[in-house]
């Protein structure tokens, strides 16, 4: 099959935003935003509501197009990418949205299997993969629970499991701990950290300063659609344009 995750271990930014601006009508969501994320890094986008965190994540999955500037993911300017290539991008950059969508009336296991089957994974292999992923997110015992029966934390973990099931190179999580209690938040962050240590680049948007402080990772702070500062905790060498 084409492509492997081996390249994740190489140096250089896997995500680069260069002077990106985005408007929604008269509202300026982003202005001149530039930053880079290294391969395998776990980084945070922080800022108050409306600062442009979700917009950045949507730009990275080509759910939105920038009005100006370039968005590079895995070396490609995705703002100029052909529409037919978007599915390939989304297999590389998985997205966990804020509202945690799961298929209603179906179990966690079925939700993950659904994602793998639409990507054409053979059933046996998909079954094995589901086992691995459920173990990773700690939901093996709840595999048969329907989406309506899940708690907030379980639901969040199930959505993360579905997102990473097809082994993306990048995981983009939008407020994954938004409505969770502190203990559950820690659990979810541990899972994201494990995913990052496995080689997947993880970019998490949050407004919860405590989570960010506890994780001690690089932070890109946004304010009114601009990068206000970048706090270096790790070994980021790609530099920032901001």
């Amino acid at each position: 099959m084409v492509g492997t995750l081996a390249s994740v271990e190489t140096e250089g930014p896997i995500i680069t935003m260069s002077r990106v601006s985005k408007r929604y009508g008269d509202v300026e969501a982003l202005r001149d935003v530039s930053f880079g994320i290294n391969r395998g890094e776990l980084a945070f986008l922080v800022g108050p509501s409306g600062s442009g965190k979700s917009t950045i994540l949507k730009l990275l999955t080509r759910e939105l197009l920038p009005d100006d500037g370039s968005v590079y993911v895995a070396g490609r300017d995705i703002s100029r990418m052909r529409i037919g290539k978007i599915p390939q991008l989304r297999r590389v950059a998985a997205y966990v949205p804020q509202d945690n969508p799961l298929l209603p009336g179906r179990s966690i296991e079925e939700n993950i299997l659904f994602a793998l089957s639409v990507l054409g994974w053979p059933r046996e292999r998909a079954g094995r993969r589901v086992e691995e992923i459920l173990e990773l997110v700690g939901l093996t015992d709840r595999r048969k629970a329907r989406s309506e029966e899940l708690s907030g934390g379980e639901r969040q973990r199930a959505v993360i499991a579905r997102a990473v099931a097809s082994a993306p190179k990048i995981l983009l999580a939008d407020e994954p701990t938004g409505n969770l209690d502190p203990d559950t938040t820690v659990g979810v962050m541990r899972i994201l950290d494990a995913i990052s240590r496995a080689g997947t680049t993880v970019l998490v948007s949050t407004h919860d300063r405590n989570v960010v402080d506890a994780m001690k990772k690089r932070v890109i702070a946004l304010e009114n659609g601009r990068v206000s500062r970048i706090e270096e905790y790790g070994s980021y060498r790609g530099g920032s344009d901001a």
């Binding site: 492997t4 390939q88 297999r91 691995e132 995913i195 496995a198």
Partner: peptide
Amino acid sequence: QTQHDDLSLEHGEDGESASLHRGA
């Protein structure tokens, strides 16, 4: 050039378990 050549967006499922368990 390196950026373009480095990572292909052609990403199949064979990379699969890449793996989440490699470093975990």
